[in-house]
Design a binder for these strands. Sequence first.
DNA 1: TTTTGGTATCCGTTTTTCTGATACGATTTA
DNA 2: TAAATCGTATCAGAAAAACGGATACCAAAA
Lengths: 305, 305
Amino acid sequence: MKLQQLQYFVAVYEQGSFSAAAEKVNATQSGLSMHVSQMEKRHNVVLFHRSSSGVSPTEEGRAFYLEAVKVLAAACRAEDRLKGLSKSVVGHVHVGLMPTFTRAVLTEALLRFDREYPEVRLSISEGYASTLAGEVVEGRLDFAVVPASFAINEALVSKSMGQDRECLVCAADRDIPMTKNGVHLKELAPLRLVLPGTGNARRTLIENYMALNEVEVSSILELDTMHGTLNLVASSDWVTILPGIMCLPDLDGSRRKVAMLVDPPLTVDYMRIETRKRPLSAVAQIFADILQEELNSALEVFPYA
Amino acid sequence: MKLQQLQYFVAVYEQGSFSAAAEKVNATQSGLSMHVSQMEKRHNVVLFHRSSSGVSPTEEGRAFYLEAVKVLAAACRAEDRLKGLSKSVVGHVHVGLMPTFTRAVLTEALLRFDREYPEVRLSISEGYASTLAGEVVEGRLDFAVVPASFAINEALVSKSMGQDRECLVCAADRDIPMTKNGVHLKELAPLRLVLPGTGNARRTLIENYMALNEVEVSSILELDTMHGTLNLVASSDWVTILPGIMCLPDLDGSRRKVAMLVDPPLTVDYMRIETRKRPLSAVAQIFADILQEELNSALEVFPYA
DNA sequence: TTTTGGTATCCGTTTTTCTGATACGATTTA
DNA sequence: TAAATCGTATCAGAAAAACGGATACCAAAA
């Protein structure tokens, strides 16, 4: 059994095609075909169903894939150890964040990280969960933080980062009936609601909540710009629903009013996604830890009442 | 990075010699030398200090070894999955047990295992910890159960199986001053004590206990046969000290009297040792689990008073 | 000083791997 | 229905890598 064979197999598995995988790993289609079929013959198993439109893994192929990526991850760790990467904290970290994070948690994390590891290059991309997930799979991002509702790719592994509460955000001068530090949304109906576009994972979450709790929505405005949303809400009777950590700057009530949704609460889980086959580099791990710490302290402000 | 290079490296590491490793993995000394030096050059590290009497790992070599065995273990699991070994429960299991286990726990475990997996061949070897550890390193045993006091080889990993109480064993008709279900050994001094030979790990344990608690021993008899010891103790004024699970058949008091050592108690931890670089086969794991269960129920008889 | 046990290096041989071309099947397109 | 397209399997020669014996070298022990 060779390590490269595992890489080839994993590539074919993830691409669903010998040809595409060959291009990805800089090899030829015939080479991959031979390697995979050699593995199959040697162990008398069939790993892929071949068809004229690509390949799909068999049950055995699926099971083997899960083991194969563990081997590759271990091999990466071993090689990193050799390179001394596990000690020296230098390099380039690419991180993808859902928009939620870029307002509240990111700034603090960035400042801390830059102070402690000034020679590390850091690249942050903002995007929707599905986009970011794709980038992680492709290896262009070290990891990404997305809402947990997102169904993740098999090539990815997710680690929970914590649960947040969704909050109603409206103009500061608006009177809303608060109950025990929260708001019962139905009492505000009919709502004029600003929502993210349908590509956003939170959109579905919120619409389900509305439907399930029979909250009447008189009009919906689709805004995919966070600045625009916040400005509009601050100076009109439009309201929106945002994760708690996005509302932190507004908790003083000077520009906007914030109230947790209650009866029932609406929660959102954040998770960090990364590839199975390559463990986080030492630097990426450090930044992930800092991000987690900042998130933790941000979440403390919103107790699970 | 190739899997075989890792195997070569690990072999050299464990043998402390290129020549010995070459023989072990059925390769030539020159081949191993080239592979290792290639790894070293490629990553600009030195893995071994070469000398005319063999090699010793550098700090980097040590660190890399710990990662390398993880890769090999993962690769074994992956290959086992391909072979379908992880499902089918057939094969041959070799287990090493310290003498303690062969009296009480083994029988029950054997019966259960043979009933549930009749087509599996099982080989049990009895031996001292150091012997068994060597056999495990060499790959002749799937795993071994030994007392935890034994300092284990770096190629091995140990898992705790539970703590046992040492007991005094003497003739059934002897009168001994019992206190709260135990015996204070000093009150019986001077003792005529049957002990295992100096090669036995428990020998040191017991002698330390005697010295530390100032128990006077009038004479020592070295017996390395369990049958001999038990028979002698049953029909003379010689006494011995045995782990609790060995005393289970004597708890009825018909042939021998058993009393836990108290003030202070003397305990012994059992552990399972296996190689780092190869995970237990499915069958071996099952037998290990059964052994653990039997040990647990045996240990319940001796509460940690 | 010689012997012994160990490692590094060299080079011809053998084995494996890689690649490009080709064949074949299925699905889509004209 | 025929052709074109996309995908995989297979083959044979070329390229690369691994292998293994011989040799050189070193250091400690005899």
